[in-house]
């Protein structure tokens, strides 16, 4: 793992998300609590909705297009829907959001 400093955690609204652009697509970084973040693919597998624009509740996000709900921990769709979004390692240290550059690099190289 190689952690990359992305931004201050305060740059992401509480129960909100911001997008990080990577070579093969957007990754949404969610802030579910004061110092809790999750990084997942920004693209809903259903119809490609931008998950970073979804409503965040608990450790889940609801897609803004058709209300699919995903666990930010596992990436699994909840309830009746079947699908999964890719998850990436992310953590908060001293008020900074860190993402795993190796994972994103693999994604970039893939």
């Amino acid at each position: 793992m190689s952690w990359i400093d992305i931004a201050a955690v305060a740059d992401i609204p509480l129960r909100g998300a911001r997008v990080v652009k990577t070579k093969l697509g957007c990754v949404a970084v969610f802030r579910t609590d004061e110092a809790e973040v999750y990084a997942v693919s920004d693209t809903c597998p259903h119809k490609g909705g931008p998950l970073s624009d979804g409503l965040v509740h608990d450790r889940k996000v609801t897609c803004p297009l058709h209300n699919w709900v995903f666990s930010l921990e596992t990436g699994e769709a909840q309830g009746a829907d079947e699908g999964r979004i890719e998850t990436f390692a992310a953590r908060v240290e001293n008020g900074r959001v860190l993402l795993d550059g190796t994972a994103l690099g693999r994604r970039t190289a893939a």
């Binding site: 992401i12 652009k21 990577t22 994103l104 690099g105």
Partner: peptide, 12 residues
């Protein structure tokens, strides 16, 4: 706007 843009950095 995006929080960061990693597409500008070379993959290692």
């Amino acid at each position: 706007a995006p929080l960061a843009d990693l597409t500008l950095e070379a993959a290692e």
